[in-house]
Amino acid sequence: MENNHSHSISNKTYIGIWIGLLILTFLSVEASFVQFRAFAVGVALFIATAKAFIVAYYFMHLKFDSKIISIMVLVTGVVFLTFIILTFFDYAFREPIV
């Protein structure tokens, strides 16, 4: 049987992480009121990705689980990014419709 409880995050750490996530949320909301123009999407997605990473790494225990799961997450991410990038090869280069 696997020994799953060798690693425990203390409740304090969890609450710290939670506060961190809240701060990032408010940061993201604040940023939306500043006119970043072209960067708005980038900034919002960057903050979201940071939050998602924190949730996955601590709350979802990627930090403690076997490496293979992290590798799988990575593969999934890469495949999904490939879908988006390759689809954009179409839309980014469409000749403007006359």
């Binding site: 495949v79 490939t82 879908f83 390759l86 090869f89 179409d90 839309y91 980014a92 280069f93 469409r94 000749e95």
Partner: peptide, 22 residues
């Protein structure tokens, strides 16, 4: 296999560069 789906769409009106890459 994940990277080649566009070859079903060479005549669909997909952009030129996408056709070449696929």
């Amino acid at each position: 296999g994940y990277l080649v789906w566009g070859h079903h769409m060479f005549t669909s009106g997909m952009s030129g560069p996408a056709r070449i890459i696929f």
